[in-house]
Design a protein around this nucleic acid. Structure first.
Length: 336
DNA sequence: TCCATTTGACCGGC
DNA sequence: GCCGGTCAAATGGA
């Protein structure tokens, strides 16, 4: 719309918009790639890419790029106002849910997966809520359906389907739909394993920060880490304090180059270039194997109490992890 | 009491 | 008509 005013020809505006769409798709692909890496640093890189995606979506939204809506690239919560309350999606009428008039999403199978990965763990840095499970025709294993925990509170429409791999039952096929539009730190229960680190005092460090009690408990439930192993960020040391403080102090975690973020392509090349280390496989799989894969958010209780995202850079905040290592063992060097 | 999971039923696409 | 995706009441745990 509003032909971007000024002298930008509609033609070029359209091209730019198209570029944005492609950039977003590329970032999404990159994210998929990172998810498949099974590398301890992949979650962080993934977060960075998520932030890129978020930025792109925001830009697309600001420019009224139609593609922004495809993956739910922006916050529907702002759309209709009541998006968050109790019934997140479903644009169709719910007039008489009482009887047999239940309505369902109009476009169920038309939704294209944005990601697909085979993984040993269901931990992907987001907090999911299971909303269904279904026996699938050709598979001996049921398929579980998850949506982002913040689907209702923030209108985040990210979903995923999890099904145990037939070929290797110890692994799961995770298919993602939509993108996370939520920006809450609690959706970033990043757990960085220092598995590859030297066997000194850092060896057992599990750095976790910025997630809610729900993620906390879920991670604990999956055995991903123990509370005694927290290395709280921002100088706080109690697990409970992490919730709100870590994000406020996260800027401190940036190295000297904190002020200058990478360009997208630099970032992508950095991410790709630095990925490729093995390990990870967060220890959650045992718990996850329980029955219908419902172990993810098994904690229950205690979520929705996180503070609002401090700023729009929530995703980028995790970039501070790049300086955690501090030395040559760095995850990423933000320095050019 | 709150919240997540379970589970049966409903609905729509193919 | 079948099958898969989703809803929502019931249930259980913290």
């Amino acid at each position: 719309m509003a032909s971007s005013g000024g002298d930008v020809p509609a033609e070029r505006a359209a091209a730019a918009a198209n570029d944005l769409v492609e950039a977003r798709d590329g970032a999404a692909s990159l994210r998929t790639f990172l998810l498949e890496l099974d590398d301890q640093r992949a979650p962080w890189a993934q977060r960075v890419v998520d932030a890129v995606l978020s930025r792109l979506s925001s830009a697309m939204s600001a420019l009224d790029v139609g593609g922004a809506a495809t993956g739910g690239g922006r916050s529907p919560a702002t759309g209709s106002g009541s998006g968050g309350a109790s019934r997140p999606q479903q644009s169709v009428s719910y007039s008489s849910r009482n009887t047999k008039d239940k309505k369902r999403s109009l476009s169920r199978r038309s939704q294209r997966p944005s990601d697909k990965k085979i993984t040993t763990t269901l931990e992907d840095g987001h907090v999911w809520r299971k909303y269904g499970q279904k026996e699938i025709q050709n598979s001996p294993y049921p398929r579980s359906y998850y949506r982002c925990t913040h689907s209702s509170s923030q209108g985040c429409n990210a979903k995923r389907q999890v099904q145990r791999s037939e070929a290797d039952p110890s692994k799961h096929v995770v298919t993602y739909y939509g993108e996370h539009t939520c920006r809450d730190p609690s959706t970033i229960p990043l757990v960085v394993h220092a598995a590859g680190a030297a066997p000194d005092d850092r060896a057992n460090n599990l750095i976790s920060f910025g997630h809610s009690g729900a993620s906390d408990s879920s991670a604990a439930a999956t055995g991903a880490y123990s509370s005694s192993q927290y290395l709280a960020m921002g100088g706080r040391s109690t697990a409970g304090d992490q919730l709100s403080t870590s994000w406020c102090t996260s800027d401190d975690m940036f190295s000297s180059s904190a002020g200058s973020f990478m360009q997208v392509d630099e970032l992508i090349s950095a991410v790709v270039g630095s990925a490729g280390v093995t390990s990870t496989a967060t220890a959650g799989s045992a718990a996850l194997d329980r029955g219908g894969l419902g172990g993810m958010a098994g904690g229950g209780g205690g979520n929705a109490s996180f503070p609002p995202s401090p700023n729009g850079l929530a995703g980028f905040v995790v970039g501070s992890l790049g300086s955690i290592g501090g030395d040559d063992d760095d995850l990423f060097s933000m320095d050019p």
